[in-house]
């Protein structure tokens, strides 16, 4: 079972065609990689799920929670998974489905398992430590946002008038980057981003495309750019933008279509300029 390779059998056209031919009233199989906790062995369990119209992977997992019996009629526990909004805006329910990371809420059974007995495979994301079953600990991802100071350094929350004016083109650019929901699909797809359980190494291991893109987002903001030198200095260190291997998997994996490779290129240029400036300033 491939876990990280990016070779989509699940293209939009394939999914649309499946949706057209999906059989009503069928039963499909969910094959789920389970694990009771850190350090425990993984195992596979399969479940038969009767499909209702419009059913997604979350609805199937809810069915299993209410009927925790495997396909070979063995009692088991409900599957543990992370989820919240179920509208593909919170990023919580990301998992590896048929070998590719995506949100399970927007994964419709009609698109992935249109025929009787078709199997959908669910695994936890491989780049983060498993907490239990499909739930992984993505703390490192949020830590990266702190590393690149992904915020606007405002003068506090008191009323100090409006923010800077912004033209619509710049707003559209920033909005596009600001839709990043910290799901981690770009990291799952990235060959340079490797599993790192040791928290003390998070400051020197690759920050990932999402954090580089957030650095660019805040570098573009008139107040946010006050911290641009700090962000670029951080992204010059080990684990920064030079760790990117230019595989370009991230941009294809992003469910929100964020221009991650453009961000990496932009930050690369900014880092180079910053390095020159520092060289000539003798720093």
């Amino acid at each position: 079972m491939p876990t990280t390779a990016y070779a989509h059998d699940s293209t939009a056209a394939w999914r649309r065609a499946n949706r057209e031919r999906a059989l009503p009233g069928r039963t499909v199989i969910l094959k789920i990689k389970r694990c009771d906790g850190p350090g425990k062995p993984a195992r596979w369990e399969s479940f038969k799920v009767p499909v209702e119209p419009g059913m997604n992977v979350i609805a199937a997992l809810k069915h299993i929670a209410a009927n925790p019996v495997t396909a070979d009629a063995t009692h088991t526990t409900p599957v543990v998974y992370d989820a919240n909004c179920l509208e593909e805006v919170c990023g919580a329910c990301t998992m590896v489905i048929n070998g590719h990371a995506r949100q399970s809420c927007s994964c419709l059974l009609d698109e992935y398992a249109p025929r009787e007995g078709d199997t959908i495979t669910l695994e936890p994301m491989s780049k983060f430590p498993v907490v239990r079953d499909l739930w992984v600990d993505r703390s490192r991802l949020f830590h990266a946002l702190t590393r690149v100071k992904a915020w606007v350094p405002i003068d506090g929350t008191y009323d100090l008038g409006a923010g800077p004016k912004e033209d619509p083109a710049s707003q559209q650019d920033r909005y596009g980057m600001s839709e990043c929901m910290s799901c981690g699909c770009c990291l799952e797809a990235c060959p340079q981003y490797t599993h790192e359980d040791d928290e003390s190494k998070w400051d020197t291991s690759f920050v990932g495309a999402h954090a580089i893109s957030q650095a660019r987002l805040f570098n573009e903001h008139p107040t946010g750019k006050e911290l641009k030198p700090d962000r670029l200095d951080e992204l010059m260190t080990p684990g920064g933008v030079t760790d990117c291997g230019n595989a370009q998997n991230c941009v294809k994996a992003c469910p929100k279509g964020i221009p991650l490779t453009e961000s990496i290129a932009a930050i690369g240029r900014q880092v180079t300029l910053r390095a020159f400036a520092r060289f000539f300033q003798g720093k």
Partner: peptide
């Protein structure tokens, strides 16, 4: 105004 200062990308007019 505060949210604007925080960098919320509010849609803009021409």
């Amino acid at each position: 105004d505060l949210l604007d200062r925080m960098g919320v990308p509010f849609n803009r007019t021409s």
